[in-house]
C-alpha cells in the first residue's frame, strides 16, 4: 500500500514537473525561431551601425530584407490559445497577448513598417542604418514592454 502510494506520488510529480514537460509545441518553436531570425539580422545591421562590423552594402540590404520577410509571416498559426507563459514552460509570452490581439498585431505591423524603412536605405551607406535602428528597437520594445514576461 505504502509503495503504491509512493509510486502514485512519484508519477504525479513526474507528470507535473517541468523536467518531464513535453517538448515545446511546434507553434511556439516557430515563433521563437522567427524572433531569433530577427535578432540575427538586427545584429548584422546593428554591428555595422556601431562600427563593430565593417559596412557591406549587400550584407546590410540582405539583413534588412530578411527583417521585412519575417514581418510578412502570418502570425496567427504561431500563437494558438494555451501557449502563454502561465499555461506552459519555455515561453515568456504573456497571457495578455490573447486578450489584446488587435494591439499585438498593430505592434507587429509597426515592426513591419520599421523594417521596410530600414530596407529602403540599408544598401545606401553605413550612415543610413543607425537612424533606422531606433524605430526597430522601439517596435521590439513596444511589444516586450506589455507582452513579454520577465526572465
Amino acid at each position: 500500500m505504502k509503495l503504491s502510494f509512493a509510486t502514485l506520488a512519484a508519477t504525479a510529480i513526474l507528470l507535473t514537473s517541468p523536467a518531464f514537460a513535453q517538448e515545446l509545441p511546434q507553434a511556439v518553436k516557430a515563433r521563437q525561431g522567427q524572433f531569433n531570425i530577427m535578432a540575427l539580422n538586427l545584429g548584422i545591421l546593428g554591428g555595422m551601425a556601431r562600427g563593430t562590423v565593417d559596412y557591406d552594402a549587400e550584407a546590410a540590404q540582405t539583413a534588412a530584407d530578411n527583417l521585412v520577410t519575417v514581418s510578412q509571416l502570418a502570425q496567427p498559426a504561431m500563437w494558438p490559445a494555451g501557449t502563454d507563459a502561465m499555461s506552459i514552460d519555455g515561453t515568456r509570452a504573456e497571457p495578455a497577448i490573447w486578450d489584446n490581439l488587435d494591439d499585438v498585431l498593430a505592434k507587429w505591423a509597426a515592426f513591419g513598417e520599421a523594417a521596410t524603412a530600414m530596407a529602403e536605405v540599408a544598401g545606401t551607406g553605413r550612415d543610413a542604418i543607425g537612424p533606422n535602428m531606433g524605430p526597430l528597437g522601439g517596435a521590439c520594445k513596444a511589444c516586450h514592454d506589455d507582452y513579454r514576461a520577465p526572465e
Binding site: 556601431r50 535602428m133 528597437g137 514592454d145
Partner: peptide, 25 residues
C-alpha cells in the same frame, strides 16, 4: 562599456535581443 551604452540607447543587448519589462521604460 560600449555594449551597455548601446543598450541604453537602442534597447538592444549584444545578441540583439530587445529590452522588455520596466527596463524598456
Amino acid at each position: 562599456a560600449a555594449d551597455v551604452a548601446y543598450y541604453l540607447e537602442s534597447g538592444f543587448t549584444p545578441s540583439f535581443d530587445a529590452v522588455g519589462g520596466h527596463m524598456a521604460a
